[in-house]
């Protein structure tokens, strides 16, 4: 489904990603882990389209997306959940999720002013779909509340609903557990588990090793911008290179929280 082929990107002469190659199969949950500075966020931003690769290609369902701007990648089926609280303030939860439907709808400004039947139909469909997505993440009861007042855990679930409204082929989550309390983290893990059962293809970039090993079918480990291991959770966690690069410090770090 998602193919990243020998992608490199440097900042000021230092490679943040170097020849990163990985393939995510349809319906797979792929974890990306690595210590701080391993290049996880760079990889996330390269796939999302917020930065461009210097070399290498990224394809989604056989189509190259690495030269497309971010909004066009959304149209191709890249769904994004940001680490930060990137919900749209001043808008209700429902309106936030309705924005997510931009990726597969088309009515423009002229249609908005004239409101032909096609536009009205599309609006109804967007609303129904957004309500459905809100209910999937358990926030339908708060549909008319302003988004900025939500606690962080719910803001992240709102982002998941917004991304789902774009009918993504692959869902990218950037450190979805960071900053969450234990209970919120548990709820989020359950939500990702449900999405996996529904057959959603997920790329999970995460610092929390425990969360990733419990959710992902395969894990790619980055260190200093390179892929150092790729395999099932048990393969990866027993790989000496991984233990050396990451788990030694990461495990104690995860235990701190």
């Amino acid at each position: 489904m998602l193919t990243i082929d020998r992608v490199s990107r440097s900042f000021g002469g230092v490679y943040a990603n170097r020849d990163v190659t990985l393939t995510v199969a349809e319906g797979e949950v792929r974890g990306i882990i690595g210590p701080n500075g391993a290049g996880k966020s760079t990889l996330f931003n390269l796939v999302a389209g917020h930065i461009r690769a210097e070399s290498g290609t990224i394809s989604l369902a056989g189509r190259r997306i690495d030269r497309l701007p971010a909004h066009a990648r959304a149209r191709q089926g890249v769904g994004i959940v940001f680490q930060g609280a990137r919900v749209f303030p001043g808008m209700s939860l429902l309106a936030n999720v309705m924005v997510g439907a931009h990726a597969h709808t088309r009515a423009g400004v002229v249609a908005a002013a004239l409101r032909p039947p096609s536009q009205r139909r599309e609006e109804r469909a967007i609303r129904a779909q957004a309500e459905d997505c809100l209910s999937r993440v358990g926030l339908l009861d708060w549909a008319s509340r302003p988004a900025e007042g939500l606690p962080l855990g719910q803001q992240r679930r709102l982002q998941v609903a917004r991304a789902l409204a774009g009918l993504p082929r692959v869902l990218l989550l950037d450190e979805p557990a960071s900053g969450l309390r234990a209970a919120e983290r548990q709820e989020l893990a359950e939500l990702i588990g449900e999405l996996r059962r529904d057959g959603t293809t997920i790329l999970l970039v995460e610092h929390d090793v425990g969360l990733v090993t419990s959710l992902a079918e395969r894990i790619t480990v980055l260190d200093l911008g390179r892929v150092i291991a790729d395999g099932t959770p048990s393969e990866v966690t027993s790989d000496p290179a991984v233990i050396k690069a990451y788990l030694g410090t990461g495990a104690s770090h995860a235990a701190d929280r």
Binding site: H50, A74, V78, I80, F82, P89
Partner: peptide
């Protein structure tokens, strides 16, 4: 609210 998030929403 957020150009980056809007862009990624399509």
């Amino acid at each position: 609210g957020s150009e980056t998030a809007a862009e990624s929403a399509g």
